[in-house]
Design a protein around this nucleic acid. Sequence first.
DNA 1: TAGCCTATCTATAAACT
DNA 2: TAGTTTATAGATAGGCT
Lengths: 219, 219
Amino acid sequence: MTRRKIQIKKIDNTTARQVTFSKRRRGLFKKAQELSTLCDAEIALVVFSATGKLFEYTSSSVQQVIERHGLLSSNFDKLNQPSLDLQLESSTSAALSKEIAENTHELRKLMGEELQELNMKELQELEKLLGSGLKRVRDAKGEIVLKEITSLKWKGSQLMQENKQLKQMANQQIHTLELELEQGQSSEPIGDFIHSDPSQDHDSSGTSLKLGLAFPNGI
Amino acid sequence: MTRRKIQIKKIDNTTARQVTFSKRRRGLFKKAQELSTLCDAEIALVVFSATGKLFEYTSSSVQQVIERHGLLSSNFDKLNQPSLDLQLESSTSAALSKEIAENTHELRKLMGEELQELNMKELQELEKLLGSGLKRVRDAKGEIVLKEITSLKWKGSQLMQENKQLKQMANQQIHTLELELEQGQSSEPIGDFIHSDPSQDHDSSGTSLKLGLAFPNGI
DNA sequence: TAGCCTATCTATAAACT
DNA sequence: TAGTTTATAGATAGGCT
């Protein structure tokens, strides 16, 4: 985009491609963040480099996203009876399968009725059309899988983040407790540990304690 | 960015915000696509407008994504023991993908068989048929989105549950500490809890996750 | 609400360190 | 391999329709 205009196609030179990837990736994430901030939008962005390295950005808090999804899903209430989350999960999949089955059946029926009327010469047209249809189905399929990745990773990140915060809080509490005990005071305040407080909501911070996982096994 | 530079903060004027959202969203998606093409990267981008409208882009081909997914999942297992829930989730999606694949195949086969029988010049009918087919595909897509939504919702609840457990464990640690200190013992064990380890450092997600507070409700 | 225009601002390709 | 510079392509805020 600058000294020279470039074509939007895969960059052959490996080094150049990697450099461009770094630069543009940063630019993309910046844009995503700006959009989120400027327009109050929730954004999830996941990028896998050609070498499989993962980069991601998400603007949202778990709760906000869930709420938003809650709103959205209410639009689909006609199709699925919303109840407990766990139930939704399975019933949705079932509904999808059923829907697909029905669609297939319906299409077949249509074909049986209409195709007989078709001229042989329209075969190319049909092929073309069907091809695009199939492509869409494949795309949809791809999306399902990618979605899964996105949400899985997303969840993982959130979990780790929360773990960090939890540990930080615990650390503080323990220090407080130690001090108090050293001074022969009672340990009343400990009850508060769990509640703590969420006042630091905005993303201005950027403080990340690299505490790692406290409970690597079994959670 | 143009007539005047603007501050990156939420745009007050509703109309202006909406206009900016439209423009920048398009720009963001374009950038995402360019990055994907230029650098052979896989990208998933999901944007919720402030009003809850959903926009998304994903660059993937099924194969690539599945492969990458395999890698990612195994990496993840090092950090989080795969819970039963997650395993179920995966198998559910796999089944779904398979289902779709089968349907696709069936459709193609149907077409292949029936096309030989075509005779009338009913291109219009064909168009109609295809149109309804595409509609079905779109509907299926809608279902997919629904699935994603409910899945995320479900994961959210799971996350909260896991954090509950985390907190309980932390609490136990504190109680243990408290007892030990009261008994004049050293607090060795605590070291493990607090320090944990920073091995998971090279951030794949250099992008600060603005996840907000972990325990907004004092769960 | 959606486009178009265009002066400006930002991102970035290429070169260099 | 990463940071800096620079010239230029691209994105877009504010206006207008």
